[in-house]
Amino acid sequence: MSSSTRVAVVTGGSRGIGRQAALRLATDGIAVAVGYGGNQAQAEAVVAAVTGAGGRAIAVRADVADETAVAALFDAAEASFGGVDVVVHAAGVMTLAPVAEFDLDALDRMHRTNVRGTFVVNQQAARRLRRGGAIINFSTSIIGLALPGYAGYAATKGAVEALTLILARELRGRDVTVNAVAPGPTATDLFLDGKDEETVARMAAQPPLERLGTPEDIAEVVAFLAGPGRWVNGQVVRANGGIT
């Protein structure tokens, strides 16, 4: 491989926004390590789509909260492609319930993936990214909307935003940017699960653009931050169609 080839690790890369981000980065000539938690077939389908279009990709299973597994994911990217330049941390889970009724075991599971997982992935990224690199985390526009039922999920993403802003400053002198993308309502399985048609329609009507976002919409923001958006650093980009 050319020494100028850029390499991305994309967690949650087998479905939803992570999948689309991996496909979008590949169109820019970036080699992609698709990290996935459990669905090997979906991850391999992403790899097949990338390689079928002339790109380079591998699939690696990794629990994002397991530091050994995440280190192995980065090892695989480095062994296959020569290094890591971009990290897109799209893996996440969402459980919804009012605070008074929230199952605390479910809260712990969500914290393990969304908070610890983000910290573990960012820790490896901070240690390994080459100069000119980019770390892209995921928050949510729900933090601004403050919708009932989302307190547990929004709290985990508030932690992601804090980590993102501080890590950007800790990497002073490294020429590595650290940002978070905060999507609004986006048509993914994670968002649509458990919602009836009326709820989806109501949320789709809220932005001035009067539609749900798509994974492709969010992937374009990721591609900008991973490539030309070098002067955007330590920011939370609210990609939500103007909903807030």
Rank of each mutant, 00 (worst) to 15 (best):
A126N: 13
G132F: 11
F119S: 11
I136T: 12
T51Y: 03
P228Y: 06
L107A: 10
V87H: 10
G242R: 00
L23R: 15
A155G: 14
A125C: 09
M1K: 14
L129H: 02
I218E: 05
N137W: 07
V232D: 03
M110E: 09
Q123K: 15
A49F: 13
T199V: 13
I143T: 15
G184D: 01
A125F: 14
E101V: 13
V221Q: 13
A77G: 10
P148K: 12
Y36G: 05
T214C: 02
A76Y: 08
A49G: 10
R174W: 00
G54Q: 10
G149F: 06
V7C: 11
G132S: 12
I58T: 14
E220M: 04
E101H: 10
R169M: 00
A43N: 14
G184R: 05
R169N: 07
G37T: 13
L23I: 13
V160S: 06
A26L: 04
A146N: 15
R116C: 10
N179M: 01
V121G: 05
G234M: 07
L192W: 12
S3D: 10
A21H: 08
M1C: 10
T11A: 02
R128F: 03
P207F: 08
D103W: 01
A49I: 14
R15D: 03
Q40Y: 06
A125D: 04
I142G: 15
T214M: 05
I243M: 00
I135E: 09
S14E: 05
T113A: 08
P208C: 06
A53H: 13
T27Q: 13
L147Y: 11
K157A: 08
Q40V: 14
T140Y: 09
G18W: 12
V60W: 03
R109F: 00
A26W: 06
T188H: 04
V121E: 10
G37K: 12
N179A: 01
R6P: 08
A226H: 15
N39K: 10
A91C: 03
A168M: 08
T140Q: 12
G55D: 01
A151N: 11
G241I: 02
A26N: 04
L190D: 09
A182L: 01
A204L: 09
R61D: 04
F81V: 05
T177L: 00
V200K: 15
V176H: 03
R238T: 08
T95I: 03
A239H: 01
Q206G: 03
F81E: 11
N179Q: 10
V88S: 00
D105A: 11
V32N: 11
A182D: 05
E78D: 12
V222A: 07
M203Y: 10
A76F: 14
E198D: 15
G18R: 09
D85C: 07
A182E: 05
A90Y: 04
A204Y: 09
V236A: 03
V200C: 15
D85L: 06
D63P: 12
D189N: 07
V120M: 01
I30P: 05
P215A: 02
D75L: 13
V70A: 06
I143W: 13
D105I: 01
T5I: 10
R24W: 12
G184F: 03
G242H: 00
R116F: 04
P98V: 02
G12V: 06
V178N: 14
R61K: 14
Y36M: 04
T164N: 03
